[in-house]
Write a protein that binds this DNA or RNA. Structure first.
Length: 466
RNA sequence: CGGGGCGUAGCUCAGCCAGGUAGAGCGCUAGCUUUGGGAGCUAGAAGCCGGAGGUUCGAAUCCUCUCGCCCCGACCA
């Protein structure tokens, strides 16, 4: 039967009725009970994973591989991804950058204009639609954002401008590996700055530089900016942000003083940031391909290590604005190509990097800021009236505070519960057993240090919630 | 893209060389016992042995082709 306007109107109304909105639920009704959660943990190491972060992400039930270099994000993994995204977003917003969302599937046209359609090579996944139009799954977005700019911005008065997005990209890597650290599909924050002069663009670059330092620090990481090769994006000024980790994919070198530097707090992004940049770039730091013998660092002060690239910033001037005609009218009436930069953070890769930097033999150790739950609540004897009651109370109090706790209300044995909690790495474990309850205490375990303390319920909550 | 390896139950793997009707451990289901660091016993469910051809009375096993995945290197957020 063909739907009439009337039936269509009715069904649309039905969509607006309350049941349709049931998925939009306040925190209080989200389930954080393990018995209702999907957490497919693995006791054994999957054969497909060789490095520790990949193994732990699979074992902790965070991700599952869908195809080579392409992953499904399960509930626990998605929670971490969202937390990292939120930190990145906050720090970008703080600089005055504006969030937008560009398509994953792009037209080949602007790429033909910039010349990169031919230059990019096989890493670009090319698609032809039914009308024989050339499309591609975006590996990056300089062309698209430049197109947005030229069609919508025409005056120097609109600058400076920085647009960013947090979105999925695809690069058809020859050899995907290391789980989400080197996947083909990955979540990336990419920002693009537009300015009227080289000097102004330098300031835009510096803002991102500082924002990156802050972003990584909030995730519990020590990232070191290193002079970098600009690669196919082009330009002269570029830094990679590197996390030191044994399993890093490239060799890196830096002065040990960089490991001690502190990250600026309460930054005024309108002020001159050059002193901060100078401070961070005054000491030698370079990736393998930029490393030189004439670095001048005393033997004992040079750190040679392996690193994971978690961010890359470029200033490339008019490389795209010129061929694509992205110009603004200046005060004197002339039209001038804009000076651009682009700034990437590998959001999904960061999860792997954080685990590489923070784990032990028992599993992941999440830094507080990115942990999927603030704490785990372990009922050692589910079904016991006393422990059930205490756990229900704790669970409710967390929810009342708007904080998330993962309540293991299953009837697994204690050992299995402990092992699982250690594996998924929540910062705190609140352990409730019959003996403790009889004494009026719960046990609080710090995942990172392994310390366990018997505390009153209030003291435990105070420690976890702060 | 060069080189190597592997596809058998949800996971880890045995069986393949020397063809004969599919196995173990873990996990899962049920019951009993157990209960503070991945428990024990009993009973179960679960696999077109990656796919397609071929050889053979008979193929997980031999041959050919194909698809997928992993590892090492060269390349990349």
């Amino acid at each position: 039967m063909v739907s009439t306007d009337r039936t269509r109107a009715l069904s649309f109304a039905a969509l607006l009725s309350p049941p349709f909105f049931r998925h939009v639920r306040p925190l209080e009704s989200q389930t954080m009970r393990l018995s209702r959660f999907m957490l497919p943990t693995l006791k054994e190491n999957p054969a497909e994973a060789s490095i520790v972060s990949h193994r732990l992400m699979l074992r902790a039930g965070m991700v599952r591989q869908h195809a080579s270099g392409i992953y499904n994000w399960l509930p626990l993994g998605l929670k971490v991804l969202r937390r990292i995204e939120a930190i990145v977003r906050e720090e970008q917003d703080r600089t005055g950058a504006l969030e937008i969302l560009m398509p994953t599937i792009q037209s080949a046209e602007p790429w033909k204009e910039s010349g990169r359609y031919d230059d990019y090579g096989k890493e670009m996944l090319r698609i032809v639609d039914r009308h024989d139009v050339d499309l591609l799954y975006g590996p990056t977005h300089e062309e698209v954002v430049t197109d947005i700019f030229r069609k919508n911005v025409g005056s120097y008065k609109s600058l400076p401008l920085n647009m960013y997005q947090i979105h999925w990209k695809f690069r058809d890597e020859v050899r995907p590996r290391f789980g989400v650290m080197r996947g083909r599909e990955f979540l990336m924050k990419d920002a693009y700055s537009f300015d009227t002069s080289f000097e102004a663009a330098k300031h835009a670059y510096n803002k991102m530089f500082v924002a990156y330092l802050r972003t990584y620090e909030r995730m519990g990481l020590k990232a070191i900016p290193m002079a970098a090769d600009t690669g196919p994006i082009g330009g002269k000024l570029s830094h990679e942000f590197i996390i030191l980790a044994e399993t890093g994919e490239s060799a890196v070198y830096c002065h040990k003083g960089l490991l001690e530097k502190s990250v600026p707090k309460d930054v005024d992004y309108d002020a001159d940031l050059q002193p901060i940049i100078n401070d961070w770039t005054s000491l030698y730091a370079a990736t393998d391909e930029m490393h030189v013998e004439t670095h001048g660092v005393p033997e004992g002060d040079l750190v040679a290590a392996r690193g994971i690239e978690v961010g890359h910033i470029f200033h490339f001037g008019t490389k795209y604005s010129e061929p694509m005609g992205a110009t603004v009218t200046m005060p004197d009436g002339t039209n001038q190509p804009v000076y651009m930069g682009s700034y990437g953070i590998g959001v999904s890769r960061l999860i792997g990097a954080i685990i590489e930097a923070s784990h032990d033999d028992n599993g992941i150790i999440w830094p507080k800021e990115v942990a999927p739950f603030a704490a785990g609540l372990v009922n050692l004897k589910s079904g016991n009236a006393e422990t059930d009651a205490v756990c229900a109370d704790i669970y409710d109090r967390f929810r009342a505070r708007g904080s998330e706790v993962l309540y293991d209300d299953t009837d697994e044995r204690a050992g299995a519960k402990f092992a699982n909690m250690d594996l998924i790495g929540l910062p705190w474990q609140i352990i409730v057993g019959p003996k403790g309850v009889a004494k009026g205490v719960v046990e609080l375990k710090n995942r990172a240090t392994g310390e366990r303390d018997e505390l009153s319920l209030d003291a435990a909550l105070q420690t976890v919630l702060g």
